[in-house]
């Protein structure tokens, strides 16, 4: 299985993602933002970081970079595109998933482990996972998910919420919401469920000695789903 991680100026989780993808069996290729063509891939990942210094709005400049037209075409033709953290911000700015990510409600950069609940497994990312609550890491200043009421209705009607912030038992209450996100939303799919944007970093949870293995479960399952 082939994957591609796009490196934008200011990306800083691209190598972590490269290591994670290779560890679980992907043959990953790094792609520079200024390239025009994507290499042949089964999965394209927009990594975390601070592309273009978060100028204007997080992800706004990166969403207009040269490679993005190719990523958008790949997504529109059904290809799997996953955006993590700043990658999620790039996805919303490019219109591949609905909504926006605002500044965290309490104006603080949040860097900690959180629990997230997978709501819907009827998609290539979470299909066949045998648990619902995962511990992932978040590190962001703009992760406060927001969309219009009309968009929210459409998102909920189409089961497009990928993951919710919750506690270790999977309770999705406001007090387990780290950043003020609407309805505790931590990740969103596009309508077709081939594009996933999420704030948490599964690639930071692939080794017990680092912080945990829930990311390992996610990546192992993902590659099996794609095979």
């Amino acid at each position: 299985m082939k994957s591609a991680v796009i490196t934008f100026p200011g990306s800083n989780c691209d190598r972590d993602m490269h290591v994670a993808l290779n560890k679980f069996g992907f043959k990953n290729q790094m792609v520079w933002h200024n390239d025009i063509e994507l290499p042949k891939s089964d999965l394209v990942v927009l990594p975390g970081g601070f592309s273009y210094g978060d100028y204007l709005r997080c992800g706004s400049m990166a969403s207009k970079s040269k490679i993005m037209q190719s990523v958008i075409n790949f997504a529109k033709s059904g290809g799997l595109v996953m955006g993590i953290c700043n990658g999620f911000q790039i996805l919303v700015e490019s219109g591949l998933v609905p909504g926006v990510l605002l500044r965290n409600k309490y104006l603080e950069f949040i860097c900690k482990n959180v629990f997230v609940k997978i709501d819907n497994k009827n998609n290539p990312y979470f299909k066949n996972l045998d648990k619902e609550v995962f511990e992932f890491h978040i590190a962001h200043n703009e992760g406060n998910y927001f969309c219009t009421n009309d968009q929210l209705k459409e998102i909920e009607d189409n089961n497009q919420v990928a993951i919710y912030y919750c506690n270790d038992n999977g309770k999705t209450e406001e007090k387990f919401n780290p950043n003020g996100s609407l309805k505790n939303i931590a990740g969103i799919f596009n309508k077709e469920k081939n594009v996933l944007g999420m704030m948490p970093h599964p690639e930071r949870m692939i080794d017990q000695s680092l912080s945990g293995e829930d990311g390992s479960l996610f990546f192992k399952n993902l590659i099996n789903n794609i095979k």
Partner: peptide, 8 residues
């Protein structure tokens, strides 16, 4: 196209 995000 760029300077504003019309969602917000």
């Amino acid at each position: 196209k760029l300077l504003a995000n019309l969602v917000i």
